[in-house]
Computed example of a mutant assay.
Amino acid sequence: MEDDFDLRQGLTDFLRLNSLSVTAVANGAEFDRALGTENFDVAIIDLNLPDTSGFDIAGRLAKTSGIGIVILTARTTRDDKIRGYAAGADIYLSKPVDGDELVYAVKNLAKRIKQIGKVSQAPLQSTTSWFVDRVTQVLISPEGVAIKLSGREAKLLLRLAAEGGNIVSRAELVHAMGYQESAEKSRGLDAVLRRLRSKTREAGTDLPVHAVHAAGFHFAARITAN
């Protein structure tokens, strides 16, 4: 994601010459459209974009996806680097960047992302309960099926798991997932639950998260987390 046309084209050509598949975009809006139609292993993000902040995009990706994040920017101060890593960047590179360094950074990061994906998709030994791994953000069903979670899906399940089957209010869950209070009205929690139920159905099981009228939600099965 780079708004300078010449630099964007040059980086795109060089990466493609090194056997990488690249989708080049100039701003945050184009990136969001691409993200909705394509799958990516790594995102290369400039910080100074015309319509949004690269920090915001990095933070959103870190919370809601398993995409590797490379920040590539002319901003080289210590504060910017710390802020970039705090937002979720895996790698922070400064312009002008050496093309070969960028290629190896992207390839190595993509390799690690794919290895994590393979581990999360591998069937595990059957257990008597559900299990959430907060590090890899994977949900394991009692049948041993691994389901990859987004950041907010993982936070939702970890909050429910911490209550040991007790009811958690909607407001508490919204807060645990990092939404602003206004998001409660926009049904952000319900959207996350819908996606999570869809994922578990695709994995051949049903998610035992039950709504309790005027009270909240609870996980109606044994669930543990690490």
Rank of each mutant, 00 (worst) to 15 (best):
M1T: 11
R8A: 14
Q9W: 09
T12G: 11
D13L: 15
N18H: 15
S21T: 13
A26N: 05
E30M: 10
G36P: 02
T37P: 00
E38V: 05
N39A: 15
F40S: 03
L47S: 08
L49K: 07
L49N: 04
T52K: 07
F55R: 03
A62K: 15
S65A: 12
G66K: 12
I69W: 03
V70C: 03
L72K: 01
T76H: 09
T77K: 04
R78C: 00
D79C: 00
K81Y: 00
G84I: 05
G88N: 07
S94G: 09
S94M: 01
P96Y: 06
V97L: 02
D98M: 04
D98N: 15
L102R: 02
K107I: 03
L109W: 05
I113E: 08
Q115T: 10
K118I: 07
S126L: 01
W130N: 06
R134V: 11
R134K: 13
V138R: 13
E143H: 10
A146Y: 01
I147C: 05
K148Y: 00
L149Y: 05
G151E: 08
L158S: 11
L158K: 04
R159G: 00
A161F: 07
I167H: 02
V168E: 05
A176F: 04
Y179A: 14
A183C: 02
K185N: 13
V192C: 09
K199I: 00
L207E: 03
V209F: 03
V209T: 04
V212S: 02
V212E: 12
H213N: 11
F217N: 08
A221Y: 08
A221H: 13
